[in-house]
Design a binder for these strands. Sequence first.
DNA 1: CAATCGTGGCG
DNA 2: TCGCCAAGATT
Length: 364
Amino acid sequence: MPERPEQGVSILCDGGDAAPGALLAWYDRHARELPWRVGPAARAAGVRPDPYAVWLSEVMLQQTTVAAVRDYFAHFTRTWPDVHALAAEDDAVVMAAWAGLGYYARARNLLKCARVVAGDHGGRFPGTAEGLRALPGIGPYTAAAIAAIAFDEPATVVDGNVERVVARLFAVETPLPTAKPELVRHATALTPAIRPGDHAQAMMDLGATICTPRKPACALCPLRPGCAAHRQGIAGDLPRKRAKPPKPVRLGHLYLVRRSDGAWLLERRPEAGLLGGMLGFPGSDWSDAPAPAPPLAAEWHRVGAEVRHTFTHFHLRLTLHLAEVGMDASPARGTFVPGADFRPADLPTVMRKAFDLARTAQPG
DNA sequence: CAATCGTGGCG
DNA sequence: TCGCCAAGATT
């Protein structure tokens, strides 16, 4: 099929005929091979994407890079091959498996969603974006992505990549998030009736590999002939974004208690809020308040170096307090977890950092 | 609606 | 070293 590079953005879609536009043609040649993806070739041979795998991957990919997701996706699909298996698992096991991936509300909502699908929908995900949107943890993006990729619904998928691609294609100079509705309108106009899932993934692949945030590779872009921002020489400056407020520094304390049999004192954090539902060491609430009472009376040793960790909206510095206690210790907070049952990898990263530091640093 | 919610990589 | 950024959802 001949490409039509002089027809502006109309080269993106098929214009009503059966010829793939420049974007889908590019995708057919350059689609990345990803564990959760059924490529164009397999797709043409009749292989259908598994809605469970599509859902799982899309939730993991929310605000998270492909590189970070790979191993987690492999572990989850190997451990829980379908939505029934996941729905039947204990909360603590799933939270531990998610540890390190971040945004832990996703894991809590993942389980809620799995249990709704398994319990109320016979294990089958709703086949429309509207139906999917009603499930926990599935917002506008994820609903559209699953509907398009797994169910061939011509839903418009708008993630950060798509926002960037259309902001450049149409040279939208209004900053985000104000520009969002306009970008969605543009993205909707580009969504084809055929192969909507491939179109969505092509837009995202393009944004991830060619139309990148900084120094886009316009020379390699299949949409360059129709790109207004490139024509104006401002592609690399779009999309504009509202300036972000500075991150304050917060201080806090953690108490790491090792019992003589090798058990560690841990506590489950409340469901709501930062690191909600995850395991951690007892401590202060990180609001710059003075150190709270330790979880038990002991000879405490302060670690010289502090844990530094940056969250989405603040920098954290944690002072660590260590103690070794006997078998008769009875803490006011938390539970002793036997050494054989304790894996640092089950902790969120900031807690794992604290554990690693406590094991290696000298007292100060 | 604006704030909240993780982490690792990159320039 | 540090700000920016990544296939957003929830409240």
